[in-house]
Amino acid sequence: MAQSSVTRGGGFSTWLVRSLSRLVLLLVVFAIGALAMHFGMHAGDRETIQAWKSQAESLQAELMRAQADLAALRSEAAVQAGTQRVLQDRNTELQQELGRTRDQLAFYEQLIPPGPAGTVAVRAFDIQADGEFLRYRVLLTRNAAPQAEPFKGRMRFVANGRSQGKAVKIELNSPVVPAASETAASASGADPLALVFDQFQRSTGMLHRVPGLSIQSVRLEILEGDMVRASQDADLNRAVPDRAGVLP
């Protein structure tokens, strides 16, 4: 009887030990699992936060690029607007200049004399006393095609007056190159009365006054070689009208 009790007591102890061992093992496993879950959850949070940070940084960089592009577009738009205004102003100026040029062309086309091709005409001639000189202004036109050879000749001024009680005619000479001329004869040493032009010629210059000669009028002759192609008289003491502004 005693031995059986001992045997039962030893079996209980062994079961208790085993049960406690199992319980401890279960607690350890549970603790390990809890710790693993805890650290796993926190690790997931860190990964999520890191992903959000990366996404935020990417969006920030993209936003900065978009702002830079927007600033560049605004600057380019401002430059284009300024360039457009400049071009519009220049276009307006060119249109106005074209209008004035067309008006001048129409005016001068009216001055072209009728008649055979190559006809030269004196459209305006004015001469006035200026101290010891005579100042002249001349406008010539020629009926010629744009591709025709230029007219080449010279001007000759003949004074009609009285000297020592007698009527005389004296050719006047130019002491200087014309003050304002559209001829090609303004080079140094060239004849200041020479003419080279296509359709229009404006010329101004000075002539010597002859001592002792009382000039009543001056005759302008346009020469081509020795041939007089056109002529016109002007009174010295009476201004000649500018023919609607054709004289400078």
Results as ranks from 00 to 15, higher is better:
226 D>H: 11
67 Q>A: 06
222 I>M: 06
95 Q>R: 10
32 I>T: 14
121 A>I: 04
233 D>I: 00
148 A>M: 07
142 R>M: 01
243 R>K: 10
200 F>N: 00
225 G>Q: 01
60 Q>W: 11
102 R>Y: 02
54 S>W: 09
37 M>G: 08
215 I>H: 05
26 L>K: 08
153 G>V: 01
93 E>I: 07
180 A>P: 01
170 I>C: 04
69 D>Y: 11
98 L>D: 06
23 L>Q: 12
5 S>M: 11
229 R>P: 05
46 R>Q: 12
241 P>I: 04
242 D>L: 09
87 L>W: 02
108 Y>W: 14
200 F>G: 02
194 A>S: 04
134 L>R: 04
42 H>K: 12
3 Q>N: 14
44 G>E: 14
15 W>K: 10
15 W>V: 09
56 A>S: 12
62 E>S: 11
129 A>G: 12
5 S>L: 15
140 L>A: 06
78 A>N: 04
98 L>I: 07
166 K>F: 11
189 G>E: 06
222 I>N: 05
31 A>Y: 11
248 P>V: 14
93 E>A: 09
225 G>P: 05
137 R>C: 03
142 R>S: 06
122 V>H: 07
5 S>R: 13
48 T>E: 03
105 L>F: 03
51 A>W: 02
92 T>I: 04
189 G>Y: 04
69 D>P: 00
132 E>L: 06
29 V>E: 12
162 R>F: 01
209 R>G: 06
24 V>G: 11
73 L>C: 04
65 R>L: 10
46 R>T: 11
108 Y>E: 15
186 S>D: 13
208 H>E: 13
224 E>D: 15
156 R>N: 07
188 S>V: 12
228 V>P: 00
187 A>K: 09
171 E>P: 10
25 L>V: 01
193 L>F: 00
76 E>D: 15
27 L>T: 13
44 G>V: 12
220 L>S: 01
191 D>C: 03
231 S>R: 08
1 M>C: 08
18 R>E: 11
225 G>W: 02
88 Q>S: 13
151 F>Y: 04
158 V>D: 00
148 A>K: 06
172 L>P: 00
176 V>H: 10
121 A>C: 07
28 V>T: 13
191 D>I: 07
238 R>W: 12
138 V>P: 02
198 D>R: 07
125 F>E: 04
115 G>M: 14
216 Q>V: 15
217 S>I: 02
180 A>K: 12
124 A>M: 03
77 A>K: 15
96 Q>T: 01
125 F>D: 02
89 D>A: 14
237 N>G: 11
23 L>Y: 10
41 M>P: 03
50 Q>N: 08
184 A>F: 10
157 F>T: 07
29 V>Y: 08
143 N>Q: 13
61 A>P: 04
96 Q>C: 07
119 T>L: 14
218 V>S: 08
218 V>L: 08
154 R>Y: 09
114 P>C: 02
82 G>Q: 15
127 I>P: 02
101 T>G: 00
70 L>H: 08
39 F>R: 11
64 M>P: 01
17 V>D: 10
146 P>T: 01
155 M>K: 04
197 F>I: 02
221 E>F: 05
171 E>A: 15
157 F>A: 03
222 I>C: 02
